[in-house]
């Protein structure tokens, strides 16, 4: 896994490369150039996600929700998106697996690459994109089926041919739910508590073996104990997955994420390693937000 210390250097903190970059990050070509320069002997790590001048509109062009976002997401990292309500963080997240297409009257411009592949290209099937880029939603929303079925369904529809029981067990273990439900796999998922349901939703997402897991405020509907369990789970998951998480809880962002992007009014204000963004923010606006002076 490349998630060792050396990747910290190559994770293109724009602070070192270009401290006054308007979007918190220089454009991709420069970024990859400077990355190679600064990393020197370390192997080049290609970003998992490359977002390039992304614009997004709701209401048939009436609302310009994302206004030229460019950022990279590194593999095997937890990247947090923070910002006040309505800043576009959830919209950005949902662009990453083409969920926004399900809403009528939306338009997208710009490119998003996953492993170098344009997910909005003409010949890219959104179904295949979503299989690779999974998503956990804000509200726990298990299917009204058994626990087992919840986890197995995604694998089944994607033509999984292996041992389904083993897959269900592994997914539930990864989501730290196995021990609590192993004796009631065939009971109904709605009988679980809210926190358990959310971990079931995580297990369900992992069962289709995505590369990237998007999480949209996954713990905001949960109590503190359930929240800390979800956070633990997320930290363990980054070994196998790349995680992008939207949160309005700044403590949570600082606890679990490696990098944080601060969005405001549809623009990316700053993206930096989490500890830096919270302790030494580059932009006044970021500082005002993370210190609680606005937002």
């Amino acid at each position: 896994m490349p998630a060792d210390e050396s990747t910290d250097d190559v994770s293109t903190s724009p602070a070192s490369a270009d401290p006054v970059s308007p979007n918190g990050r220089p454009d991709t070509s420069e970024a990859s150039g400077s990355r190679e320069d600064s990393s020197g002997d370390a192997p080049t790590v290609h970003p998992k996600l490359e977002i390039e001048d992304l614009h997004f509109w709701y209401d048939n062009g009436g609302t310009h929700a994302l206004q030229g976002i460019s950022m990279d997401v590194q593999p095997h990292r937890v990247t947090a998106l923070i910002g006040p309500s309505g800043c576009g963080k959830s919209t950005l997240l949902r662009c990453l697996n083409r969920m926004n297409e399900l809403i009528q009257g939306t338009t997208l411009e710009g490119t998003i690459l996953v492993d170098g592949q344009d997910i909005y290209a003409e010949d890219t099937d959104p179904v295949m994109v979503r299989r690779r880029v999974g998503m956990v939603f804000q509200k726990p929303n298990p299917f009204p089926k058994t626990i087992y079925k919840n986890v197995a369904w995604g694998a089944e529809i994607n033509g999984y041919t292996g041992d389904l029981d083993a897959l269900v067990e592994r997914s539930l273990r990864q989501a730290a739910l196995w021990d609590e439900v192993k004796d009631q796999l065939h009971s109904h998922a709605t009988n679980l508590s809210g926190g358990q349901q959310q971990r079931l939703c995580i297990a369900r997402t992992l069962a289709v073996q995505p590369d990237v897991v998007l999480m949209d405020e996954p713990a905001s509907a949960l109590d503190p104990i359930a929240t800390s369990k979800i956070e633990e789970t997320i930290t363990e998951l980054k070994e196998d997955y790349t995680i992008v998480i939207v949160t309005h809880n700044m403590q949570q962002a600082s606890r679990i994420s490696d990098e944080t992007a601060f969005l405001y009014m549809g623009r990316l204000i700053e993206m930096n390693p989490t500890d830096q963004l919270f302790t030494r923010p580059e932009k006044d606006r970021t500082e005002a937000y993370v210190t609680g002076r606005f937002g």
Binding site: M99, V127, R132, G134
Partner: peptide, 21 residues
Amino acid sequence: PSGVRESAYALGATRWQVIQS
């Protein structure tokens, strides 16, 4: 609920798979 639809789509289901299941 739209959450059920969305989470099914997010697993890589086609429209018909979401409707049928």
